[in-house]
Write a protein that binds this DNA or RNA. Structure first.
Lengths: 173, 173
DNA sequence: CATGAAACTTTCTGTTT
DNA sequence: AAACAGAAAGTTTCATG
């Protein structure tokens, strides 16, 4: 049978669920992250009620989460369709030999491309673009085409959308 | 030479840059969207200074943008790497005949998958997942595999990240 | 759309455990 | 070191013009 824990050890055990390199997250931090990922403008007062802590304590924790980089920022979620962008595209691209930098430059300088990942495997890049119509779709693709092979798809629906809060409960280490 | 505009016509001309189905956006709305997509927690007072309007007017406009759906919400941007998720994946998947619904269900019920688009063309789905290690990577892929062909890539870097504010200036109609 | 007053929230200070 | 309570500063909201 194991030796009983001191009160301070019990508290440490209960509060520090996860340890990372420079910081640790407990279940209250997790609750804060869940709430703020759902609503970034939630007032500190209401947030403190939900996580069961005083307002200054919650404010301190949020500041710390920002400082260590867990919270990278707060962004309004804009609907491109409401701005007239009727088509969302996924563009996979593979640069020709020696055209890697030119392709990256073409992708970066195309404002309709809102995100792009470089990935392992056959396709080098997977980019997401929003365009008003097929005319603009062609114009976007034609900016990439000179530098390699591309494969464009139109987004028909999104079965899962922006669900990062699911990760918070699963976090470990 | 064209007939001079009435004051009311001039104002309409100057303020209604874009017309959509049910609403119109002028350059001040665009400026508000740009600011809030960069920082959702920007105080209305500071926002009103930046767009050159009084605080109540800006508050009204923001409320309207929320009501018509241009602003879908406000979210904290959480860094999965800081939660211990060392690997980001893009998983392309194509269901076997008759397995479409099962594959959608498998994707929806996998919490490591944070977003998924159904697209035209050869691959039906493109999903994004965050996992702690290759063990968890295999577990995620194995949830999809029974229902079709998959092609997984590891995200190595992201040349373009979350750049939706670029769309605001280009919006038209 | 702007001004000014009231209500609320955030932040700061000091204090406690 | 972390959390709390109260006071001060700022912001949002609501009335009115």
């Amino acid at each position: 049978m194991s030796k009983p824990l001191l009160v301070s050890e019990q508290q440490a055990e209960a509060s520090k669920d996860h340890r990372f390199g420079k910081f640790s997250l407990d279940r209250i931090d997790a609750a804060i992250l869940r709430e703020l990922s759902k609503d970034a403008r939630l007032p500190r007062a209401e947030l403190s009620r939900r996580v069961g802590l005083s307002t200054p304590s919650v404010a301190d924790r949020v500041r710390r989460l920002e400082d260590v980089g867990v919270i990278r920022g707060y962004h309004a979620d804009i609907d491109p369709a409401c701005l007239g962008y009727g088509l969302a595209l996924l563009i996979r691209a593979r640069p020709l030999p020696g055209q890697m930098q030119n392709m990256i430059e073409a992708i970066r300088s195309t404002p309709q491309i809102v995100s792009c990942d470089r990935v392992s495997g056959e396709d080098c890049f997977v980019a997401r673009a929003h365009v008003h119509d097929v005319i603009e779709m062609e114009a976007v693709i034609d900016r990439i085409v000179p530098f390699g092979a591309t494969n464009s798809s139109v987004v028909q629906s999104s079965p899962v959308e922006n669900r990062i809060e699911q990760l918070i409960s699963l976090a470990r280490k």
